[in-house]
Design a protein around this nucleic acid. Structure first.
Length: 421
RNA sequence: GUGGGUGUAGCUCAACGGUUAGAGCAUCGGACUGUGGAUCCGAAGGUUGGGGGUUCGAUUCCCCUCACUCACCCCA
């Protein structure tokens, strides 16, 4: 049966992955270029880490109770018997690299960015894939809430350059390890008091993750949850000051935001600041980017006590709402007549390419009409005409396909014309 | 992992349970052997996602499976 099966389906890209084809890939390149240019303005440098890491890295970093680690990792055993995992997120890798190379001792600003694929075994839907791509930025060693505001502003700057509109910035503080357990307990207590009035889903959340009751869409649950204690009341003095300073700096940078006490985020390691930028142009998966502060991870890894803060931006999601276009290509199509002219055209193509002109020659014998039809099909900007007559004179034709105007000249004269616009 | 929707040519879509599954666009060839977009003619392209069942007969009805898609969950 399997040998009879249609090859086409069997060889399709696996579930949750997809090809990015010419025509679309130019948008990716444009986005990546704008991201690099923007981050470099803020003093960030690229840091490339491996696509897979020891499974333990994510268990300790991302958190062994997070959904990502519990049920979404691509984990496998290699031939040496090691348990490895295709990274579901990037932050633990950067932290590992800093410790491994003692980058904290170099004195350079620890501002890093990276873009590449991440892997999570989720059920695919709009804006959610099993191999997806993130742009990730991290800053280490800056305790001041000002840097949290700075990276949020940097995210805005990038989204602005990408033509993304209709976004909202949500910020919150989840406190530190001192205050958070107390808040969870208080929330659980409050939920127990109204348990019978909550929906079945929320009754379950009351046990497993009381913070998520705030996310329920049922009206009665929302009303009940509105009366629950706010995390703001459980922050220690230091966390409260940190959060106030974040908001003050966002005001200085003129970043509009909304404080959302429900914004907890699913990764275990966040402390103090959490934030998210959401878009109205997406479906249920509406977060364009999310991040926050993680002051304990480095220490928990057995490294120096260096704090961190950063965010991850989903490339697929941003592209679906971005207004960017790839560069306009101005292809020069080489039209020739006959074998000798083909060889002359081949050499002319080499010459023009060596001088920076995108040039296309195809090895199919066509008449002049056929060549022009093909050039038109390819949306070539110009056609170079090489025939026996041209070769005899050493002067070739150059036709502008948009205007229909045609001139002739030596190859140097034509090159000059090609380069001037 | 749980639900709903959808799978017919490269793309967008037709076809009451009944002959050889069609159309537009795209592709290729010709009209047209030194100058494009047009027009006309023609060709090629399908195990109707896959498997099983009901039926004299299934693209159509039923079941399973796979994929896509939307939502839950979670997150980028």
């Amino acid at each position: 049966m399997s040998e009879e099966a249609s090859g086409r389906k069997d060889l399709a890209a696996v579930r949750g992955t997809r090809d990015i084809l010419p025509g679309e890939v130019e948008k990716w390149q444009a986005l990546e270029g704008l991201a690099r240019a923007t981050f470099e303005l803020y003093g960030f440098r690229e840091l490339r880490a491996p696509v897979f890491e020891p499974t333990e890295l994510f268990e300790k970093g991302t958190g062994s109770t997070s959904d990502v680690v519990v049920k979404e990792m691509y984990t496998f055993t290699d031939k040496g018997g090691r348990s490895l995992t295709l990274r579901p997120e990037y932050t633990p890798s950067v932290v590992r690299a800093i410790i491994e190379h003692r980058l904290d001792l170099e004195g350079a600003p620890m501002r890093y960015y990276y873009m590449g694929p991440m892997f999570r075994y989720d059920k695919p839907q709009k804006g959610r894939y099993r191999q997806f791509h993130q742009i990730d930025i991290e800053v280490f060693g800056e305790k001041d809430a000002a840097v949290d505001a700075e990276i949020i502003e940097m995210a805005h700057a990038l989204l602005g350059r990408l033509g993304v509109e209709g976004t909202e910035t949500l910020v919150n503080s989840v406190g530190c390890r001192a205050g958070r357990p107390a808040y969870s307990a208080a929330l659980r207590e409050a939920a127990k008091g109204r348990l019978s009035d909550l929906c079945a889903d929320c009754q379950r959340k009351a046990e497993t993750n009381p913070l998520r009751i705030f996310d329920c869409k049922i009206e009665t649950c929302r009303e009940i949850a509105a009366a629950f204690p706010s995390i703001q009341d459980f922050l220690c003095a230091e966390c409260r000051d940190h959060f106030a300073r974040l908001l003050a700096c966002l005001d200085v940078l003129k970043i509009p935001y909304r404080v959302d006490p429900r914004l907890v985020r699913g990764l275990d390691y966040y402390t103090k600041t959490t934030f998210e930028i959401v878009s109205s142009g997406l479906g249920a998966q509406n977060a364009l980017l999310g991040g926050g502060r993680y002051d304990d991870m480095m220490k928990d890894f057995g490294g120096p006590d260096v704090c961190g803060t950063g965010f991850a931006m989903g490339i697929e999601r941003v592209l679906s709402v971005a207004e960017i276009a790839g560069p306009v290509r101005k292809i020069l199509y080489v039209a020739y007549l006959g074998e000798e002219a083909m060889k002359a055209g081949l050499e002319l193509a080499r010459f023009f390419r060596a001088n920076g002109v995108e040039c296309l020659i195809e090895y199919k014998d066509r008449g002049m009409k056929g060549h022009f039809g093909r050039a038109n099909k390819l949306q070539a900007a110009r056609v170079l005409i090489v025939g026996p007559d041209e070769m005899a004179k050493g002067r070739f034709g150059l036709k502008d396909m948009a205007t229909g105007k045609q001139v002739d000249g030596s190859r140097e004269e034509i090159l000059a014309l090609l380069l001037e616009k």
